[in-house]
Design a protein around this nucleic acid. Structure first.
Length: 256
DNA sequence: ATGCCCTCGCCTCGAGGA
């Protein structure tokens, strides 16, 4: 099974790039983030014509997540993270697909630090941790996939010293990610490539992609049974160089 | 220390992104 994640930065503005990548990469299941589109603006027909069924949780202008599956319909199991009924951001959707549970998430950015946005990020991360603990206790195969907006270690940042005070790299945020690993989740890309510099995002500014000034912030967290079957992991870096591309590249893993 | 670029909205600049 080939499972992918792609922060598209606007699903309609990015539709041509998304469809081209789906055609070339043919992932079985795809988690999308930053749709930046209301539910009725999701390009369902174009994605179905590409061979994918989808569920999505949209929002006008901001956020928005979706799960796509090739040749089958994802069965929605959750929409929105538990723990705060007043949370209006569309940042989590979950489905049963291909015999596993896939949670697609877009964790808050959190900048500037300090401030209400950073507080919201920490609260959201706490809710994710509480829910992830429940999921892993179930003993069923689960993948938590998406844009976590955290670089877990110095190896995941082109210039760590420049990012120390940023919401993506603050100690509290790295600690929240580490707590997920302590629960028993496996960071799939890092597990397969323990010492490699791997980035999934490059700013649009300052020619960051050409300089390879990147960050690794898009992740796959796997329960033990899924991690045991891991075969490959790759960033489709070439997509980041396409015209009108996202600032993130698609990332995928393969497992049995 | 800041802006660099890019998205969306109802809009030709502002907010947010990371």
């Amino acid at each position: 099974m080939k499972l992918a994640t792609y922060n598209v930065n606007g699903v309609n503005g990015r539709l041509e790039v998304l469809l081209r990548w789906l055609d070339e990469a043919t992932p079985d299941v795809v988690c999308l983030q930053e749709l930046k589109a209301a539910d009725n603006r999701f390009p369902r027909r174009e994605i179905e014509n590409a061979g994918y069924s989808a569920i999505w949780h949209g929002q006008k202008s901001w956020n928005g997540v979706a799960i796509l599956a090739r040749g089958q319909a994802p069965i929605e199991t959750r929409r929105g993270l538990p723990g705060d009924l007043d949370d209006s951001h569309s940042r989590y959707i979950e489905a049963a697909v291909n015999g596993i549970i896939v949670g697609c998430l877009y964790l808050p950015n959190g900048n500037p630090v300090p401030g209400p946005r950073f507080d919201y990020k920490l609260r959201w991360f706490k809710r994710l941790g509480d829910y992830a603990a429940e999921l892993i206790e179930l003993g069923v195969p689960v993948a938590l996939v998406g844009d976590f907006n955290v670089m877990p270690t110095d190896l995941d940042v082109y210039k760590p010293e420049r990012w120390r005070d940023d919401a993506l790299f603050r100690p509290e945020v790295k600690a929240a990610f580490a707590r997920l690993l302590d629960q028993g989740w496996t960071d799939a890309v890092r597990y397969l490539h323990p010492n490699e510099r791997i980035y999934t995002f490059w700013k649009y500014f300052r020619n960051a992609f050409a300089r390879d000034a990147g960050l690794r912030i898009d992740h796959f967290l796997l329960t033990p049974a899924l991690a045991a079957g891991l075969k490959r992991a790759k960033v489709d870096k070439s997509v980041r160089a396409w015209p009108h591309t996202s600032d993130h590249a698609p990332v995928w893993i393969e497992f049995s």
